[in-house]
Design a protein around this nucleic acid. Structure first.
Lengths: 193, 193
DNA sequence: TGCAGACCTTGCAGTCCGTGCAATCGTTGC
DNA sequence: GCAACGATTGCACGGACTGCAAGGTCTGCA
């Protein structure tokens, strides 16, 4: 049986998705400037005040649900065996990143289109998360054996993270599986550009 | 002699810098939430309306003047000889990036501190520019000979761009010259991580 | 059935960012 | 001294977002 708490959580998630769909629909049909909180709320049949019970900002409603929180992402790295080569650990994290995103891949389409038209949309929320993740990963990588210096650490992080993002983006464009693209990227990074 | 137009431009630039300093000072002394447009304007002795004649957004006043515009940045790449190996072209662009930032390096300090405390600040403006630059570079790189596929192009761009950013960041932290750090990064990328 | 507590929704009032418009003021060139 | 141009400002407005308090709805329990 479903507990009342689970029930509440589920309904909340459903409602959030409904609001999000309404928001994206308006933004795609009539342009972002038409997607005011008021308009979105009306379309989702809630009051404007309630909108902010579901999203901290308008942009959040126009962005896909992130499949991971920054903290757990870093936990993935620190949870790896300490004697594993750094690059292998990072590869594992990047693979997990891609795997997590995959189920949402199809629902991602409208958001990709929306972001294509309005690059400034995701900018804020994403940039904050990204820098947070990158810095945390960097902190974890520095202390690993086999890292020859600060620049080595930075490149390792930015390259694997970049490879993961690139694989997902390219996969959305070309339809090729992101996992294969990611492995291709790893090979390039290992052999040198 | 200075033409009246030059004079106007210079005074405008000076005033903009003055406003910016006032903004950063308030944000560092009293926290960002205290740095309202009204407070900044009062400190800079202008009306709030005038503030927006100098900056398109409050965040812009709390961010350093970008030393390059996205377009010219891409022009640097397309202006390179077509038979030059891609990686060499990208390296040249990255070097130019670092060189351009260097003169502003000292003035950068308060902004670095400010961003350390409030990562969300630069997020918006920067992320927009960044994705714009990355996509343009990507478009220019794809068509170059020697690029073995879409993932190769993506990695080339993100790695060299990431190397440039990393070099600047690390230079601010450690004091080592960004140019040397950049070359170190190139070597790592060429040899493989 | 009815009541108490938890959670949800909403309206209201208020702050802040950002913009278009039009009046005013100062500077420049003639 | 006057006409043209740019800079500064006030005013009025739209839109995002928040805290608070009043109601409404659901759930468990007697």
């Amino acid at each position: 049986m479903e507990s009342p708490q689970q029930r509440r959580d589920r309904r909340r998630a459903e409602k959030q998705q409904a609001i999000r769909r309404a928001a994206v629909r308006i933004a795609l049909d009539q342009g972002v400037e038409a997607a005011t909180v008021e308009a979105i709320s009306a379309a989702a049949d809630i009051s404007p005040r309630t909108f902010f019970n579901y999203f901290a900002s308008k942009e959040e409603a126009l962005s896909p649900d992130p499949p991971w929180r920054p903290e757990e992402f870093v936990g993935l790295l620190t949870g790896r065996p300490g004697d594993e080569p750094v690059f292998e650990s990072l590869k594992a994290v990047a693979r997990e990143f891609v795997v997590r995103i995959r189920p949402a891949m199809e629902d991602l389409e409208p958001f990709v289109e929306l972001r294509r038209r309005h690059p400034e949309l995701a900018a804020k929320a994403r940039a904050v998360d990204e820098t947070k993740v990158l810095e945390s990963l960097l902190g974890a990588v520095r202390s690993r054996p086999g890292v020859t210096g600060p620049m080595h650490a930075r490149l390792l992080v930015i390259a694997t993270f970049g490879a993961a993002i690139s694989a997902v983006q390219e996969s959305v464009l070309s339809g090729e599986p992101a996992e294969e693209l990611l492995e291709e990227a790893f090979t390039l990074l290992e052999r040198g550009l």
